[in-house]
Design a protein around this nucleic acid. Structure first.
Lengths: 337, 337
DNA sequence: TTTTTTTCCGGAAACGTTTCCGAAAATCGA
DNA sequence: TCGATTTTCGGAAACGTTTCCGGAAAAAAA
């Protein structure tokens, strides 16, 4: 599609392109009357500065890449909104990619963003992420990168995480304080940091209350509805149900509930269920699901600000980790009467 | 961040930049041995062609704008995945914007995309969209644009829609065929096409079965969970509950269910509920929600292909409308035993 | 009135590619 | 061996901005 250019505007006004450019950008070095005239004629002609030429000259793409494991559940979209609100104000565009919880797709997404010369990347690792070679190479090149939520501790890069340990501890304690002692943690994939932190919180809550607990109380499950459903169905078939489930996230909790209800097991009367990374649906399902609520919008804002700081400083900084806190929404699914 | 350029590679090889360019792009007009050597040295040097310079020369941004009303519910993210899969294969990047169901935000999103010289836009209107002046101006300029799902019939532009009328008819008929005659349609905003089509399907299903029906059976509600909840709470307080609700979408249906359950009204025993635009949660809530399922991924693919055709043809084409069909998932929420 | 200073504008280089056109070298045929 | 043809490569313009530097005109000061 043909665009009106600065050359067209200059010719129409019988002035130079640098004069037109100063009219659009300068706050000085142009006579006010000349500036008004240029802006008016440019608007009448439908001129709008070509961002591609500007970016070439300024050596900056004004694009930010955001890679999330998935965006069908509202958690990551809520974070993305926080990221967008910060960057759009600064004139950046956001390229959103989702990895469908697949490591290979995550790598392709990262490569695509790098090939497009994005100015920085904000990434949450997919369920299958194991190898950080690619990320390590980006970091070594000085590529601006921020990790959030699902991070890899070994990478020297700014991070925004949640206090998974603490809130998993509290969620577990909430059940223990109601007299439940036989609990199972439906954990996330073992190589993901937040899975381990949440599992650790689960264990330490038991230890604090001197309740026997072992690695058998932790079952590596996954992050998806089908994962929770599968594992709980298996436990039911083996007649090994606990008094309560502490789940790594809401989709897994919902899957657990689905399997329990399918077998006529009452929640929370027979088995209590508590989730994590609260979804808006937590309130709507029956019974309403207790869950740890995370400040997703703020997580996005903080991640964006960390990346902006990295882009603008153009210097090596000691990467910081921001740890966010949350709350526990107690609903029917975990309250024994 | 400093990038290796084609000039650096040419100097290292003591050849010209046009030779390096031909090595990366040509399939002819370069000696094969020269080409291999250039590609190897370029890789060793970490050279990657600068997409910004390429875009300036080719007068194409390779960016596509996608504007959706919201992306916290999985419907629009599922469509976006279809769009992305088509465009990423063709070397395009997708800029995803969400309007938070707000017309003003939608306009700002569109303006931002236009200012960034995107090559085309795929848009679904927000709940508040009323005025199409901005879109009409884009169309008049020949700007490639495709509307999907929530469209404005008066705009001469390619569209991808669903057979809302037909499936609303079938959903209503499903309840009527179980002997329900007192039904209410929780409708979307009146100025949105699919709201009217779904309302019309609801009416005509009654007429087919010669059941009295009037405009009082249609209540303009909205698209959100809180909308359904508010309207049904009001009906309960006025003691004006129907035998069944046919809802404009799943969030509204879930809100309706929430209000009914809050007042101890049993679903579907006392009041049946049926939704539309099936969300994965439909199966998880209690009772599982009947809903009209739409082919979201296909909707994205078709929208992307229509836009690609428009971008590549560079000619005026008579805009086509693709109408997709779906299915009705019958679950407990609408089955009277 | 003259000299000095300031303001405003224009010209051109630069950003990093693509691609066209011409020249030099290589190849082929007589 | 020479002329004709083909192949391969280099130089430079172009894409549309930004920005630097210099010059002309205007304004101010002596």
């Amino acid at each position: 599609m043909k665009h009106v250019t600065i050359i067209d505007v200059a010719k129409a006004l019988n002035c130079s392109i640098s004069t037109v450019s100063r009219a659009f950008n300068d706050k000085y070095d142009i006579r006010p009357e000349t500036r008004e005239k240029i802006l008016k004629v440019a608007e009448d002609m439908g001129y709008s500065p070509n961002p591609i030429a500007r970016k070439l000259k300024q050596k900056c793409s004004y694009n930010i890449g955001v890679v999330v494991p998935e965006f069908l559940n509202p958690f990551f979209p809520e974070v993305i909104i926080g990221i967008q609100d910060v960057f759009l104000k600064k004139g950046y565009q956001i390229l959103i990619m989702q990895s469908n919880e697949c490591y290979q797709t995550e790598l392709e997404n990262l490569q695509t963003l790098v090939d497009n010369f994005v100015d920085g990347i904000i990434l949450s690792l997919s369920q299958e992420s194991k190898n950080s070679n690619f990320l390590q190479k980006l970091i070594e090149k000085g590529y601006p990168l921020v990790l959030f939520n699902r991070v890899n501790e070994s990478l020297a890069v700014p991070k925004v995480v949640f206090d998974d340990y603490k809130w998993s501890f509290f969620a577990t304690e909430h059940l223990i304080q109601q007299g439940l002692t036989k609990l199972i943690h439906l954990a996330g994939p073992n190589h993901i940091n937040l899975s381990n932190s949440r599992a650790q919180g689960f264990m330490d809550a038991h230890r604090k209350h001197k309740i026997p607990v072992s690695n058998k109380n932790i079952i590596e499950t996954g992050f998806l509805v089908v994962d929770g459903e599968r594992v709980v169905a298996k436990l039911i078939s083996e007649n090994m149900l606990p008094e309560g489930f502490v789940c790594v996230n809401d989709p897994t909790a919902m899957g657990a509930m689905k399997a329990l209800k399918h077998h006529g097991i009452k929640i929370p009367k027979d088995v209590a269920v508590i989730g994590f990374s609260e979804t808006p649906m937590a309130e709507l399902i029956d019974p309403p699901l207790s869950s740890v609520k995370q400040p997703t919008y703020q997580m996005g804002e903080v991640a964006a600000e960390l990346l902006l700081k990295q882009i603008e400083s153009n210097m090596f900084n000691i990467p910081e980790t921001v740890v966010l806190s949350g709350s526990l929404s107690v609903r029917e699914s975990s309250v024994k009467r």
